[in-house]
Design a binder for these strands. Structure first.
Length: 1066
RNA sequence: GGGCUCUUAGCUCAGUCGGUUAGAGCGCGCCUCUGAUAAGGGCGAGGUCCGUGGUUCGAAUCCACGAGGGCCCA
């Protein structure tokens, strides 16, 4: 340590000292204030206003609850890429979006108001309900905005779009009108998965992931076969309520059915199911093929009720009947089952729909009427039993779908629904999707698969707070009028316009229009639209498409969008559908898809499982930058495991950078380093500097490429490696350059280089870690140069300077580090403490040119390994008889393989047999590179040249500690003579004294008076190394007079010598 | 039943153009270094690269089949 009195320099330094600890949350709050105060975001937008455009569309977040940490993942991607584009000068929209209507909202508002059914909503009043929905949107849009700001996301928050806005609705109307003009809109009866609580059908994409294991009552029911006394069809069902809708019984024509007699009654069922259904005692008295049963008729289970009367129940064929469970005879209720309905359509079966939209039996079903279908199982069982139709009932566990919003069990129900026919647009959508760049690319395949399989789009929901479908079917002429805009509505309206507050129920329902077919007055259908219409229209509605705005053509299609993978079949799909319909092309050029967020053990997060992490709490505990780094570093192919454990990991890595930063600031202050001083030309700087700057250029390229390809995690990983190198090699190797007392050019070069490395690094990391990089930038750049851009986010993205690239230097440094690692290993294995200097280290196994280049790092290697000299084997005069390693020759398969083919194995084996020759082969090549080694096999000879070999050294130690890694072998001479021993002792003393200084609470730059006593070894050590010790520990005197009684003291045993060290501040 | 995808150390994951000794981080144990360091370095334990077959001089890597997980469709 050599330090001059630093106090004046530090006081004048432009760099502020660092706090003791890196505290992300408090630093981030400070930076948020800073940005607000300086209007940094506004200045960024102004700066780029004339730049090229980069168009991004924000997928709307449902403004329904506070945002979760999974939203924060996606928002981090959005912010990272927008910030990167901003640093490259792109003009952007920065428009955030909220999803504001649909079933999501309604269900939450219902919960809030304590409602249990649609009737509660009707009683409450649609107007009041709409107001409540609106209010919830306002509340949570504000909450989510504040949270996003906290995350560091930069958006034009005052310009957010809302999908419940009239403008958004009008654009959807326009889309629907275009669909209608092409003949794609139709109302049709379909069996739909139905939520009785929500009172509406669900579409196919809402059914996914909703199956849960559940126990139901399963029934064996016997039904009398017409014309065959005492003969019964035995059917099995797990949904007793659907028996009232039975119209047929399906059998597999290829299956063999058994007639079984029990208690004088004959049952027909599939032979394979007999013992399961009737027990092992059942006696088979006859057999019949399924095909022969077709045309039988039977009496239905509820034929006596008016609602089910008058239906002829037949036995019908169906290939999908299985004998795995049940009886091989399937109860068919086309009005209450999806497959049943399809089968019924094919065969022209009647459709009985016994329940209304709330799941309640309609009139005509006697005691069932008015009762909830989900609650009648026990009574149906009792009723059947009383009427002698029940054979037995049992509990049955199976997977059954639930409503994804309210968790109620779903039923299937036939109803009139509105659809957009998909067949005509399928191919154009496939074509449009094929032109999109999907990242990762499997997402494109997924979309194509979805499109090939998509059914007609069910767009109607029997709800309230949603897009009002602009469908006006005319009772008089049958024409369907589809309104395409508010103006269109005004043109056709005959009444109700005056009360039209907004395009929502109940107001819109009051507007009556003239039919476009016959001018008769027509009312709107009551249904509202699928919420994916709301989100899908956003590329148009937010750009004034309907008004023919210029903005639309400037920003459409989007350059980039990103959301979770599930959005392929949701938002990406609905946008694509609408955009292909309106403009015949995809609304986005590239799409980035990421996976799911789980807790840190890999389990899904659920509030009820107690493993969900609140965003606000996470931001305050780990910090937004740490979260962002964690998200950005994730490989998007895999689910992310998010939690405080992984965050601690990230923070530890950040600490590495913090240490480098802190090191720089500490010494730059002491030395009064001025970053605005003239730069020392790079070619005049130390190899270490040139190496680090070269590495930096590589990092710039890697980061840039990662950002351009939307694979930021690659950049994050490269940055991580760079930070490791910066700390564990550049600073570790270079730290003495900052300590020396003279202010020479090398010291200046060291400061300049580290300053450049840090300030460039923070620009590269600014998109990922906007807060901390700003903090560092303000201190390292703005503090010293008021003319620099006011924020790191107002600087330009770094570009690599190829003149600073030196790949040879990087390669050599890599080898030097391998040599150091091998040397450490050798010393360690021999039990030689690093503090003990040794005479020499020998390096072998690498090419002569590499050795040569390595010699320029000799000082680093010697210092790291604490040896006096590093020699390569050749210059040390060793030849083939050296005794600490031997050379092995192996085949270079990469070269030899293609040439020799099958023979290469034999050659390799032959070579391995004669290891004693390897040394000779090596020296032949060393003497003459053109030498050809000829290997004689039994039947032919093979000629091998230098490049056909790989040479490596194998340790064979004696007086040397030897270790090999990669192809490098390092041997350290283990002999310790007296001079080395004294030097080792001196270093022990320095180390002990430094520890004593620290424990005595001295400052790094304090001077001391020092006293050391001990035996004769110590005396001779002080004679040889006293000056060095004085120098290192900043002593002004050694053993001068007697120490005061308050002197700090330590008395260790060093290298077997008892030593006493005392010191006081000078 | 069909499609997409994944499977590498106890955990989380790298592994480029196929090249013969498969790596990192975390965790664990031992050692070590340290006046930037809640750090760093070394060693150790820990691998059927999911399995089988094929292509190839050579397979974690390419192909086929199979198993298991995830997702999607039916």
């Amino acid at each position: 340590m050599h330090r001059d009195d630093p106090s004046d320099a530090a006081a004048a330094s432009p760099f502020q000292p660092l706090p003791a600890e890196l505290d992300f949350p408090s630093m981030e709050r400070r930076i948020l204030d800073f940005w607000a105060e300086h209007q940094t975001f506004e200045r960024l937008r102004a700066k780029n206003a004339a730049g090229p455009r980069w168009s991004f569309i924000d997928g709307p977040i449902t403004a329904n609850n506070p945002m979760g940490v999974h939203h924060a993942w996606g928002r981090t991607y959005k912010d990272v890429y927008q910030r990167y584009r901003a640093m490259r000068g792109y003009h952007q929209r920065y428009q955030n979006g909220f999803d504001c209507q649909g079933l999501w909202l309604e269900v939450e508002v219902e919960k809030e108001l304590g409602f249990e059914s649609k009737r509660d909503i009707e009683d409450f009043g649609l107007e009041a309900f709409a107001d409540a929905c609106r209010e919830r949107v306002d509340t949570y849009a504000a909450v989510q905005t504040a949270q996003s700001v906290r995350l560091g996301q930069w958006m034009d928050w005052d310009d957010s779009y809302y999908t419940h806005a009239d403008g958004n609705i009008e654009h959807i109307w326009q889309f629907l009108r275009r669909c209608h003009q092409r003949g794609w809109i139709e109302a049709a009866q379909r069996a739909m998965p139905w939520c009785a609580r929500c009172g509406t059908a669900l579409s196919q994409h809402e059914l996914i992931d909703t199956y849960e294991e559940i126990t139901h009552d399963a029934l064996y029911v016997r039904l009398p076969i017409h014309g065959r006394p005492n003969a019964w069809l035995l059917i099995w069902t797990t949904t007793p309520w659907t028996l009232a809708a039975n119209v047929a019984a399906a059998v597999d024509p290829d299956l063999t059915y058994a007639e079984v007699e029990v208690d004088g009654q004959r049952y027909v069922l599939a032979e394979a199911t007999v013992s399961e259904a009737l027990g092992n005692d059942a006696r088979i008295v006859g057999r019949v093929q399924g095909a022969d049963m077709l045309g039988w008729t039977y009496e239905g289970p509820f034929d006596h009720l008016p609602g089910a009367a008058g239906v002829e129940h037949r036995v019908i064929p169906w290939d999908d009947v299985g004998a795995d469970e049940g009886t091989g005879i399937v109860h068919i209720a086309p009005g209450a089952g999806e497959e049943d309905f399809r089968l019924g359509q094919e065969l022209g079966l009647p459709v009985l729909v016994p329940i209304d939209e709330n799941g309640v039996y309609v009139d005509g079903y006697d005691w069932l009427s008015g009762r909830d279908a989900r609650e009648v199982a026990a009574d149906v069982i009792a009723d059947l039993e009383r009427r002698g139709l029940l054979l037995r009932a049992h509990r049955y566990e199976h997977r059954y779908p639930h409503c994804w919003r309210c968790q109620e069990e779903l039923v299937f129900r036939v109803d009139d629904e509105w659809f957009i026919r998909a067949d005509e647009i399928r191919q154009p959508m496939l074509d449009a999707a094929a032109a999109v760049r999907w990242t990762p690319d499997y997402a494109g395949a997924r979309m194509a698969d979805w499109l090939r399989n998509m059914g007609d789009w069910n767009i109607s929901r029997r709800r309230y707070w949603g897009l009002p479908l602009p469908f006006y079917p005319c009772q008089a002429c049958g024409h369907l009028t589809v309104i395409g805009s508010k103006r269109h509505l005004e043109e056709r309206a005959v009444s109700g316009l005056e009360q039209l507050r907004e395009l929502h129920r109940p107001w819109i329902d009051q507007v009556v229009i003239r039919c476009e077919g016959c001018e008769a007055p027509v009312r709107r259908v009551e249904a509202v639209g699928d919420a994916w219409l709301d989100a899908g229209i956003v590329p148009f509605s937010t750009l004034g498409y309907l008004e023919g705005s210029q903005e639309f053509h400037r920003w459409y299609p989007a350059d980039f969008i990103t959301e979770m993978r599930e959005q392929i079949r949701l938002w990406f799909y609905s946008m694509l559908f609408m955009s292909v319909t309106l403009e015949n092309r995809a609304p986005y050029r590239s799409v980035f898809v990421y996976e799911k967020l789980n807790d840190e053990t890999g389990r899904a997060m659920h509030k009820s499982w107690g493993n969900a992490i609140d965003f606000g709490e996470a931001a305050e505990r780990m910090g937004a930058d740490v979260m962002r780094w964690l998200y950005a570093g994730q490989n998007p192919l895999y689910n992310i495991n998010f939690g405080y454990g992984p965050a601690t990991d990230v923070k530890r890595r950040m600490l590495t950078l913090w240490n480098v930063y802190s090191f720089f600031v500490t010494y730059a202050r002491l030395d009064g380093f001025d970053p605005t001083a003239p730069r020392i030309p790079v070619e005049q700087r130390a190899d270490l500097d040139r190496w680090a700057l070269s590495r930096l250029q590589g990092l710039i390229d890697t980061m840039t490429e990662a950002m351009e390809e939307s694979l930021v995690h690659r950049g994050v990983r490269a940055a991580h490696r760079f930070i490791e190198d910066l700390s564990n090699w550049y600073v570790r190797r270079g730290r003495r350059r900052y300590w020396k007392s003279s202010a020479d050019a090398d010291k200046q070069a060291a400061y300049q280089t580290l300053h450049e490395l840090l300030t460039t690094l923070v620009r590269l990391l600014a998109p990922v870690m906007p807060f901390w990089t700003e903090d560092i930038y303000q201190n390292l750049v703005r503090g010293a140069d008021p003319n620099a851009p006011a924020s790191v986010h107002l600087t330009d993205w770094p570009t690599a300077d190829n003149s600073l690239r030196d790949e040879e230097l990087e390669a050599s440094m890599d080898i030097a580090r391998v040599v150091v690692a091998a040397g450490h290993q050798a010393r360690n294995e021999a039990g030689l403490k690093l503090r003990q200097p040794l005479r020499s280290a020998y390096v072998s196994g690498i090419e002569p040119e590499e050795i040569e280049r390595l010699c320029s790092f000799k000082a680093h290697i010697c210092d790291e390994l604490n040896v006096k000299d590093m020699l390569n084997v050749k210059e040390a005069g060793f030849t083939s008889d050296i005794d600490f390693f031997e050379t092995r020759a192996k085949l270079n398969f990469r070269r030899v393989g293609p040439r020799l083919g099958r023979l290469s194995r034999l050659v390799a084996a032959e070579l391995a047999k004669n290891t004693e020759q390897h040394e000779r082969i090596w020296s032949q090549f060393m003497n003459d590179r053109e030498y050809k080694y000829v290997l004689h096999l039994d039947w032919e000879k093979v000629e091998l040249e230098f490049d056909d070999f790989v040479f490596e050294a194998v340790p064979r130690s004696r007086e040397y500690a030897v270790a090999s890694r990669d192809r490098v072998t390092v041997a350290v001479r283990t002999e310790i003579d007296d001079a080395l021993r004294r030097e080792g002792l001196a270093r022990e003393i320095i180390h002990a004294t430094q520890n004593l200084r620290r424990s005595a609470g001295l400052d790094v730059s304090d001077r001391i008076r020092l006293w050391i006593d001990g035996g004769s070894a110590l005396t001779s050590t002080l004679a040889d190394h006293g000056a060095e010790i004085i120098d290192e520990v900043l002593a002004v005197s050694l053993n001068d007079g007697s120490p005061p009684s308050q002197a700090a003291e330590t008395a260790p045993t060093l290298d077997g010598e008892p030593v006493r060290i005392r010191l006081v501040r000078a």
